[in-house]
């Protein structure tokens, strides 16, 4: 019996990768701000100008990566964004489509969460 390959044929990776981009973006934003404020802020309120630019760049990069993966989910895995139908046919094609579809939904959620994460950088200009 032949088994589909988990990574290359399975599209399982894309499901985990998309929210992982959110996680990476989140941790990097936190880390950049934390290190900046702990290491480089003196007794005067430290300006956050540099971290804010870094966070902006990270955000653009992450959203770009998510858009790329969403594109892959759409085209390579036949995902659709529509939730009008259940993808419940007993075929490998539908299994693939299902994972592509979940990936697309996760892409939307992750993109929103990334924008949320970036919001504090718009508001705060100082470490405290």
């Amino acid at each position: 019996m032949k088994y589909p390959r988990l990574i290359s044929e399975g599209s399982v990776w894309i499901v985990a990768t998309i929210p992982s981009i959110w996680a990476g973006h989140f941790l990097l934003c936190y880390w950049v701000a934390a290190v900046w404020c702990a290491k480089f802020s003196g007794t005067v309120p430290a300006s956050l100008t540099t971290p804010r630019w870094i966070i902006a760049a990270l955000t653009a990069l992450s959203l770009g990566a998510i858009a790329f993966l969403a594109y892959r989910a759409l085209h390579s895995y036949g995902g659709t964004f529509s939730v009008e139908n259940e993808i419940n046919q007993n075929t490998s094609h539908d299994r693939k489509r299902f994972l592509g579809h979940v990936s697309l939904l996760l892409a939307a959620l992750s993109a929103i969460a990334i924008c949320f994460t970036a919001a504090p950088a718009l508001v705060f200009a100082r470490c405290w």
């Binding site: 989140f26 934003c29 936190y30 701000a33 934390a34 404020c37 956050l48 971290p51 969460a113 949320f116 994460t117 919001a119 504090p120 950088a121 508001v123 705060f124 470490c127 405290w128």
Partner: peptide, 13 residues
Amino acid sequence: GLPNISLSFFSAA
């Protein structure tokens, strides 16, 4: 007492 920007990332999530 962490910096407000750090707290806010977690508030966002």
